[in-house]
Design a protein around this nucleic acid. Structure first.
Lengths: 224, 224
DNA sequence: ATAGCAAGTCGTACTAAGTACGAGTCACAA
DNA sequence: TTGTGACTCGTACTTAGTACGACTTGCTAT
């Protein structure tokens, strides 16, 4: 009778299970819904049990960020540098699209995890083998990451917008909006951005190529 | 005896004073230190008085974001489009440097204020007068803002790092850091990033020119 | 088998923060 | 002088993070 029936319902907590559940919750309900109590419910436990596997909420967030980094594809070593960076940047955008809550966290965590470090290393190696001198490596990395993070940030926000848009936001914005006060915005929206085939995301590849082209030219100039 | 002595200490609350005080607090102590109670103390009032001038904390943040936008210089109409955009992007970076807490908020607020709308309008007008067709306008705006916001985000984070770095963070990172596991990162840090004349911010103008050059070329191509 | 221990779980309770409610105050106009 | 509307604030409720310490459980060495 006194068999271990609880291992069916409670497969024992662990740091991994806690982190995985936290990611699920954040993906599904948003980062602001990720509270220790909600997480405990989601895991079928009580709040304080969680603290035996992660030291606190900050550490939990650090762990989640490192998992996000682990999902981003590193620049493949066998590809030419531009192609390799394209792969990693596209992957970064896609992963951040799956975890929109992560964007503001990525750069604001002070405790880099192992995945983050490994990721940085692999990108630096790729820039190095492109033939860039260190100052150019620094520029290239700063510029590419700014673009990727910034773009992901805007996309994350658009996603949220769309979420409550159907409800009232659209009407609310339109109401507070005087078309004659913002003629160019109105034209832009009417003739382009509201068209069904408009897709904000298309600008990602456009901007990425802009940057990679520019960097390639800079590498050429270095060679001269 | 019963003169109005309190108007010396309490110049009467107002939406403007509340917002200004909130900006001060956020700039000085960080956004996480901006609580209604702390704000009330800063203003010499009690928490609930604030709610007569702003409807809640969300609205307070919306208002702060709009003030930040009001501080960003619009692209001057009298300048050539590239130069005009350079002015506005540099200004945006500088303003976000003064208000690092604003970066994650900028894109996550759902209620655009009048300053934000006016700002967007002015940038769109500039892109239009550069001779870009609407699809290119969309790309240009998305790409430039991604870069500016992303860069500001990274700089904001660096500023925080430097804040507690002196204390223990530097040693902490170095301790958890195995140079042989990350050879390229180590080389990059030693031979470039830790040098006294290295300045992350220098990459801003570099990236901005990369993008503006690319966009100018695209405009040329359109003309053909 | 069993004593004992380490790992894990959780009930209770404290603190910080946002804010609803409603009573009080104050300046000014009629 | 008195009524009114704008403003102020004391009290208290709610949600969240988490410290403390007791309880439970499964494994190990006898």
């Amino acid at each position: 009778m006194s068999d271990t029936r609880q291992d069916v319902r409670k497969p024992r907590l662990s740091r991994e299970r806690v982190l995985a559940a936290a990611m699920e919750l954040a993906d599904r309900d948003g980062i602001e819904a990720l509270t220790i109590r909600a997480l405990a419910d989601h895991l079928g436990t009580k709040p304080m049990s969680i603290y035996h596997h992660v030291a606190g909420k900050e550490v939990l967030l650090d762990g989640m960020v490192d998992i996000v980094f682990s999902e981003i594809e590193k620049p493949p070593a066998e590809l030419e540098w531009r192609e390799a960076l394209r792969v990693r940047c596209r992957s970064a955008r896609e992963v951040l699209g799956r975890h929109p809550w992560a964007v503001p966290l990525l750069e604001s965590r002070h405790h880099p995890g192992p995945e983050l470090l490994a990721h940085h290393e692999s990108v630096l190696v790729t820039l190095d083998r492109a033939g860039m001198p260190l100052p150019l490596v620094a520029h290239a990395y700063a510029v590419l990451d700014s673009f990727v993070y910034g773009f992901a940030m805007q996309e994350a926000n658009l996603a949220v917008q769309r979420g409550d848009q159907d409800a009232e936001l659209a009407g609310e914005i339109a109401a507070a909006f005087d078309p004659s006060a913002y003629p160019m915005m109105t034209r832009f929206a009417m003739e382009h951005a509201m068209r069904p085939d408009f897709n904000f995301g298309d600008s990602f590849d456009y901007g990425l190529d802009l940057l990679l082209d520019g960097l390639a030219r800079a590498v050429e100039r270095e060679r001269a």
